[in-house]
C-alpha cells in the first residue's frame, strides 16, 4: 500500500492486487467520488488510484488514515458477501416460496424422530 502526494491537489494510491481485489477498490472509492475526481487503473500486480481535488486536498494525513480504514472495511464486506452469497439466495428463495417446498428436515438423530416423520 503506497500513498504519494504528488501535488497539493493530487493523491496517488497504489494497492497490491494480492491484497485488494478490483471490486473492493471500486466499492471503496465510490464513496470518494462525490468529492474527489477518482481515476482507477488496473495494472498487472497493482491497482493505481488517483484522487484529485481542484481546490487542493486538506488534511492529507487524515484522508490517508480514513482510506486505510475504509479499505479494510470494504475488504471485510467483500469476504462476508462472497462467503454468504449462496445462503443469502437460499434464504430469499425460502422466504418467497409457496408453502413448505423448501423446508429443511429438523436436526437430530434418527432415534430422536417421531414415528413416520
Amino acid at each position: 500500500m503506497e500513498f504519494v502526494c504528488v501535488n497539493p491537489s493530487l493523491l496517488k494510491i497504489s494497492l497490491s492486487k494480492e491484497v485488494y481485489t478490483i471490486d473492493v477498490v471500486y466499492k471503496c472509492f465510490y464513496w470518494y467520488s462525490g468529492k474527489y475526481s477518482v481515476t482507477i487503473n488496473e495494472g498487472l500486480s497493482t491497482i493505481e488510484i488517483d484522487l484529485e481535488l481542484g481546490e487542493g486536498i486538506q488534511k492529507v494525513d487524515g484522508l490517508i488514515k480514513r482510506l486505510k480504514i475504509d479499505l479494510i472495511d470494504f475488504k471485510t464486506r467483500d469476504i462476508v458477501s462472497k462467503e454468504t452469497v449462496n445462503i443469502r439466495e437460499l434464504l430469499v428463495a425460502k422466504a418467497f416460496a409457496h408453502g413448505d417446498e423448501f423446508d429443511e428436515s429438523p436436526p437430530g438423530e434418527i432415534a430422536d424422530t417421531p414415528t413416520n416423520c
Binding site: P106, P107, G108, D112, P114, C117
Partner: peptide, 9 residues
C-alpha cells in the same frame, strides 16, 4: 415441543 419440529407431526 421437540416433536413439533417435524411438520408432518
Amino acid at each position: 415441543g421437540r416433536y413439533f419440529a417435524w411438520p408432518k407431526f
